[in-house]
């Protein structure tokens, strides 16, 4: 049987997504318990390899594996053999000697997961590769949206605002949102919009004039390095905040704000909006754990064993 990887959101059908989200939902009660652990993946091994600094994603995958009673190994680029110049291929081959069931990879380059997958029998889960994909983020975003708007997300209007060009979250979300029938608009400075982005089936806008049309406003983090000399994606963070920053006055009542974090207060999101309990930002973080448990679980047991209740 071919192993299951989760490298791109495009690997999933709408039914796959539904199953993953339902599975995640079934894990929620576990996380409310006194002892937040199930024996489901006892004896299984999950390796978390993070070649790029990440707090929330690595913590969340690590904890998800532990909640499922898997043995976990965390490897960071710093201090590892990778730091000494070992190639990704050799690192994967070496680790595969321990027969892990799953290798979770975060890597600064697109294609790292494909390379890893070709060199191991373990399942590869992409925790972010370059500017390409971040499928677990997309799934937790969808999970959050389902919690807020109900199971049927068809027709929901989402505006993704920010540095679309450099964002793997945007690429995953565009595909995932569309998979569930949502209407996606991307909003960015022209310098931060991928060429021919409309080929992805999105509406394209360069300012917030039509922001009021969105049910959900999904903000992306603006990174300081986009401004440094020579890059010239933006003249300044100040100007970004002036033109594209989402403030209270730019929102209409009922619009839900999301952000994958970490947020830049005063840049893409005003402090008042960030602190508004009506946003879905905290829910996204909470969803992360259950969704990643579901991803690990489904990666190992597959979809045939659909009665997760039994597993719990």
């Amino acid at each position: 049987m071919a192993k299951r990887d989760l490298i791109s959101i495009d690997d999933l059908s709408a039914a796959d997504v539904d199953l993953l989200l339902d599975t995640a939902e079934s894990f929620l009660p576990v996380l409310q318990r006194d002892i937040k652990k199930v024996p489901t993946l006892r004896g299984r091994t999950v390796i978390n390899m993070f070649f790029e600094s990440s707090t929330r994603t690595s913590t969340s995958f690590d904890l998800a594996a532990k909640r499922l009673s898997a043995d976990t190994i965390g490897i960071k680029a710093k201090g590892s053999a990778v730091d000494k110049g070992e190639s990704l291929k050799d690192t994967i081959i070496t680790l595969s000697a321990y027969s892990p069931d799953i290798i979770v990879i975060r890597h600064p380059r697109a294609g790292a997961c494909q390379l890893a997958s070709a060199n191991t029998t373990a399942s590869i889960i992409n925790a972010g590769d370059g500017k390409h994909q971040h499928p677990s983020q997309c799934l937790l975003d969808l999970f959050t949206l389902r919690q807020a708007f109900g199971r049927n997300l068809r027709g929901l209007k989402v505006a993704i605002v920010g540095d679309i060009l450099h964002s793997r979250v945007a690429r995953s979300d565009i595909a995932g949102f569309q998979l569930l029938g949502m209407d996606v608009t991307v909003i960015a400075p022209p310098t931060m919009m991928p060429r021919e982005v409309d080929s992805l089936g999105v509406n394209v806008r360069y300012d917030l004039a039509e922001l009021h049309k969105a049910d959900v406003i999904y903000l992306l983090r603006i990174q300081q390095e986009r401004i440094t000399q020579g890059a010239n994606f933006l003249p300044s963070l100040r100007e970004y905040a002036n033109v594209w920053g989402v403030t209270r006055s730019r929102l209409r009542p009922g619009q839900k704000v999301m952000h994958p974090g970490p947020i830049n207060r005063g840049v893409e999101i005003s402090a008042a909006v960030a602190d508004d309990p009506d946003t879905l930002i905290a829910q996204q973080v909470e969803a992360g754990l259950a969704v990643r448990m579901a991803i690990l679980y489904r990666t190992i047991v597959g979809s045939t064993d659909s009665d997760t209740k039994e597993a719990l």
Partner: peptide, 9 residues
Amino acid sequence: GEQLTEMWE
């Protein structure tokens, strides 16, 4: 010739 001005403003 290095960094863009705040054109919008």
